[in-house]
C-alpha cells in the first residue's frame, strides 16, 4: 500500500527553525490579541453608548470583521491598501488583519459581558462617591473580564490558528516557514505533519496557560 518513502530526517534537522517559527506564531497571535482586546473593548463601549457616526463606525467594523473571511481581511490589508499606495510588510499585514478580526469578535463578547453585569453594581459604586471612570475600571470591567475570560481564551486559540494564513501572504510564521522548507525539499507531507503536531502543542499550551492564569485571577 505504501510505496511512498517517508523522509523525516530533513524535517527533524530543521525542527529548531520550525520551533523558532512557532514562537513567531505565538508572538503574532498574542500581540494581535492584546490590540484586539483594547480595540474590542472600545468598540463595544462605542456600540453601546454612542450614537451617530461613532456608533456606525463601531457597528461596521464589528460586522465586517465577523461576516467576511479572515483571509479576505488579510487581502484587503495587503492588496487593497497596496492599491492606494500603502504597502505594509507581511508582518504588519498579518498583525493588522488579525487585530482587526479579533477586535470585531471580542467586541461582541464584551458587549455580552457588560450586559451580564447588573447595573446596580454601577449604581452602588457611584453611591460610594466613585466617578464614572473609577466605577467602570474598578467595579464593572473586572467583572466583565471574568464573564468574557473563556471566550477570550477561545479567541486566542483562533488567533493562533488564523495566523497560519501568513503562509498565503508570504509571512514566515510556523506555516509560512513550513511551506518554505517543504517546497525546497519536496517533503510536503512530512513537513506539514510535523507542523500539525506543533500547532496542536501550541494550542494545548495556550489552553493550559489560560487555565493556570484563571486559577490565579479568579479566586471568587
Amino acid at each position: 500500500m505504501f510505496d511512498y518513502n517517508f523522509h523525516w530526517r530533513p524535517v527533524l534537522k530543521t525542527l529548531p527553525d520550525l520551533i523558532q517559527a512557532g514562537l513567531t506564531t505565538l508572538e503574532v497571535a498574542s500581540l494581535s490579541m492584546l490590540i484586539g482586546i483594547v480595540l474590542g473593548l472600545c468598540l463595544a463601549l462605542m456600540r453601546m453608548n454612542m450614537t451617530g457616526p461613532l456608533k456606525w463606525f463601531a457597528v461596521s467594523w464589528i460586522e465586517l470583521a465577523r461576516n467576511t473571511p479572515a483571509l479576505f481581511q488579510l487581502f484587503f490589508f495587503g492588496f487593497g491598501l497596496g492599491a492606494i499606495g500603502i504597502n505594509l510588510t507581511p508582518y504588519t499585514i498579518i498583525l493588522t488583519g488579525l487585530s482587526f478580526n479579533c477586535a470585531g469578535y471580542l467586541a461582541e463578547n464584551f458587549r455580552g459581558g457588560f450586559q451580564a453585569v447588573p447595573d446596580t453594581q454601577l449604581k452602588a459604586a457611584r453611591c460610594l462617591g466613585m466617578n464614572a471612570w473609577q466605577a467602570y475600571t474598578r467595579i464593572v470591567i473586572p467583572q466583565v473580564f471574568r464573564v468574557v475570560y473563556h471566550p477570550i481564551t477561545n479567541q486566542m486559540v483562533w488567533a493562533v490558528l488564523m495566523s497560519s494564513l501568513g503562509m498565503l501572504i508570504g509571512f514566515r510564521e510556523l506555516s509560512g516557514e513550513t511551506q518554505f522548507f517543504a517546497s525546497r525539499t519536496f517533503r510536503i507531507f512530512e513537513y506539514f505533519a510535523v507542523t500539525a503536531v506543533l500547532y496542536y502543542i501550541i494550542v494545548k499550551i495556550v489552553l493550559a496557560a489560560s487555565r493556570l492564569l484563571a486559577m490565579r485571577l479568579f479566586r471568587y
Binding site: S164, F192, Y200
Partner: peptide, 9 residues
C-alpha cells in the same frame, strides 16, 4: 486544534 489550511495541505 490544527489550522484548517494545514489540514487541507
Amino acid at each position: 486544534s490544527v489550522p484548517l489550511i494545514i489540514q487541507l495541505v
